[in-house]
Write a protein that binds this DNA or RNA. Structure first.
Lengths: 198, 198
DNA sequence: TTGATTACTTACTAATTAGTAAGTAAGTGG
DNA sequence: CCACTTACTTACTAATTAGTAAGTAATCAA
């Protein structure tokens, strides 16, 4: 059992990971109900049944995507180089994550991709997405609270309300970027900075 | 040709309208790629081919939904009882529109429903949605500009940027309401009021 | 009254969907 | 070396999809 776990060096990913990566990309670029096992298989050069082997149903695949994103969120949030930043820098780090989506085929964020189709999603996927959104909102609320207490961030109302508002705006801003172009995203983020940065 | 056009009194709508109404409801409740002509037909008690008669392809049906919403937006915006309101009242009227969605099976707004699947939509539908969003944003920007000039609304930055930010937030807030419940929507709208109302 | 138009239904097709079952080739552990 | 597991492919099914073509009953215009 020498090396089953993921390595630090990025090697060629195995089929299981390649499926998950592509499914996630298609989810964020086209929506959950807009890609099939056939699409995935064709692009990966494998047969649809190979995907069923790793992810028996599309529900399993969808849930795996959200579960991985939740795992990534927790890991990122707890990373020393993120956790040790000042509130302003943490806020900027968050904006950078959303900004990165623009360069990747203008992907929307996970939440923005799944919210519209939410009722058609398998229940485990719904539950994971709720947890994802809740934890992210709680994290930002804490950042905002500390930022205001130390005088580097400025806003009225509760940190929880402001956090919900900001994250909702960011999710929506990526959607607007898809429908129009990157300009409105930059405009909206500029407005957020203008209001928040003391 | 006595009475082809729509009447003031609301009579039983014809099949064409019933199809469009149901398709719009399903679009806003489940997403564009999550309902079929069979779903519509079964619920309406007609055959799928009857829908093809009125809307030859699903692209036509989808486009008709967006076109009607655009027509409604223009009509609403130009209504004397809306156009003659004060900026604050116009802003509140806008909030009331979004708030109404909550009572209707927590429907998201048109934009929030179509943004994620945008790339899978027929081109005419994409174009109409862009126009819809642009006109709504321009309308609110004007409302905000007048409101600030007359001292009843308060915000920093340009009216255009603030308008884009507010509408994006509202679209996202309906999505959050779907994923969680109505509470975060009310929280976010409360935050908007807190910041904007001078 | 007849000939066209409207608003459908019936009956169909071709493509695509998720999913399954059985087979197989390459490793792996004991 | 042999039983077992892993990671697939081949071949299939049943359901669903959008869409079409032909037929029909009712209404309407000349």
């Amino acid at each position: 059992m020498a090396n089953k776990a993921q390595q630090t060096t990025t090697l060629a990913p195995d089929t299981r990971t390649r499926i998950l990566d592509l499914a996630e990309a298609l989810l964020l670029e086209r929506g959950f109900n807009a890609f099939s096992y056939q699409h995935l298989a064709k692009e990966l050069g494998i047969k649809p049944a190979a995907i069923h082997y790793h992810y028996p149903s599309k529900d399993d695949l969808g849930t795996a995507i959200v579960t991985r994103q939740l795992r990534r969120l927790r890991k990122w949030r707890d990373l020393p180089r993120v956790a040790n930043l000042s509130p302003v820098e943490q806020f900027e780090a968050l904006l950078a994550v959303y900004d990165n989506h623009l360069g990747q085929e203008r992907r929307v964020c996970l939440f923005g991709s799944l919210a519209a189709d939410f009722r058609t999603l398998p229940l485990p996927m719904q539950a994971e997405l709720r947890t994802f959104n809740r934890e992210l909102t709680e994290w930002l609320a804490q950042v905002l609270a500390v930022g205001r207490a130390t005088g580097t961030l400025r806003f009225v109302g509760s940190p929880a309300a402001k956090s919900a508002q900001v994250l909702t705006t960011l999710a929506g801003a990526l959607q607007v970027a898809r429908v129009h172009d990157e300009t409105p995203f930059q405009v909206i983020v500029g407005q957020l900075r203008l209001e928040l940065l003391a």
